[in-house]
């Protein structure tokens, strides 16, 4: 039954000691690795369940109350199941004076929930945060890792709709969430933009890829939100490759893991501010960007 083994394993949501053990092993040796472990657990299971925390306590040899204390100290950890989409509205001072309370109440009305609640269909969770560090762009909200600035009450219904459709699936060229980026190496600061090779009508991003015994160029679309790629050698699906800067030859690697498949993320810096990380597993569309408003 070789075919069966080749089928991609469907990941269930069940919390098991083995899966938690795997997360802990990645942070082994680091004495202060508790927050990283909890982040990993939350990324995989969506929230920190009582059972998951119990297993973490058991496996790390700490008392449950210490871990619980850390887990409910930080805003970013959730002890309750969250909806598919997480809406965080900034209610910091700058956003507040720019009308964040109206944005929060609009979200509450449109979603039919209060702050810190999840809709009954488990689609949305609404949260408020105290500052996102983008005060000049307020009122700001973050939905599933995408930042939205200078929000008006009239924007909210469209955002709710788009979030449900999935920001990543939107393919419209006029879509404001697909926009061009210029990226470079986080180590030597050289640009990755290759104007000798266009993808989607834009200079492509060129880096060096290495997998197995293959080593060659790798180009991808510089439109954030598009996943068109070209590679000198075809990368088999589900391969985790290594990526290198074509200028300084440093491996593009950080301590981040893909929120979707846990493979290492490849960091790049964005001209104009911020970073983009893409998943190093072929076939996985996991990516996250932390950018200043580029629109």
């Amino acid at each position: 039954m070789v075919e069966l083994a080749l089928q991609p394993l469907k990941e269930s949501d069940e919390v098991t000691p083995e899966r938690i053990r795997k997360i802990i092993d990645r942070h082994e040796g680091a004495l202060g690795g508790l927050i990283a472990i909890l982040e990993g657990v939350q990324a995989q299971f969506g929230y920190l369940s009582e059972k998951a925390l119990g297993i973490v306590a058991q496996e790390t040899g700490r008392s449950l109350v210490d871990i619980y204390g850390v887990a409910n100290f930080y805003q970013s950890f959730s002890l309750k199941p969250r909806g598919k989409h997480l809406v965080s509205v900034c209610v910091g001072t700058a956003c507040h004076v720019r009308g964040a309370p109206a944005i929060v109440s609009e979200f509450e009305q449109r979603l039919g929930i209060e702050v810190d609640e999840t809709t009954e269909d488990k689609e949305f969770t609404l949260k408020t945060v105290n500052c996102l560090g983008a005060c000049a762009l307020g009122p700001v909200a973050v939905i599933d890792g995408h930042y939205f600035s200078k929000l008006k009450k009239s924007d909210i219904e469209k955002l709710r709709h788009d979030a449900q459709e999935g920001f990543d699936r939107a393919g419209d060229e006029e879509d404001r969430r697909i926009f061009p980026v210029d990226v470079g190496c986080p180590f030597c600061n050289h640009s990755f933009m290759d104007s000798g090779f266009y993808i989607n009508g834009r200079p492509s991003i060129r880096v060096t890829v290495s997998f197995g015994d293959k080593h060659g160029w790798f180009r991808m679309s510089s439109l954030y939100g598009r996943y068109d790629i070209f590679s000198e050698y075809e990368i088999p699906v589900d391969t985790v490759s290594h990526f290198f800067c074509p200028h300084c030859h440093a491996e593009l690697i950080g301590s981040w893991e893909c929120p979707m498949c846990s493979a290492p993320m490849v960091p790049m810096i964005v001209r104009g501010g911020g970073t983009i990380r893409i998943c190093s597993r072929s076939g996985c569309t996991g990516s996250d960007g932390h950018m200043l408003d580029l629109r």
Partner: peptide, 26 residues
């Protein structure tokens, strides 16, 4: 040597008790 109770929460919501407010096994 038990570690059954501890601080929960932050700021004015800081409180003392067992994790998840259920009886601790420790």
């Amino acid at each position: 040597m038990a570690g059954a109770i501890g601080f929960r929460g932050r700021g004015e919501n800081r409180s003392l008790g067992t994790p998840f407010d259920v009886k601790s096994e420790e």
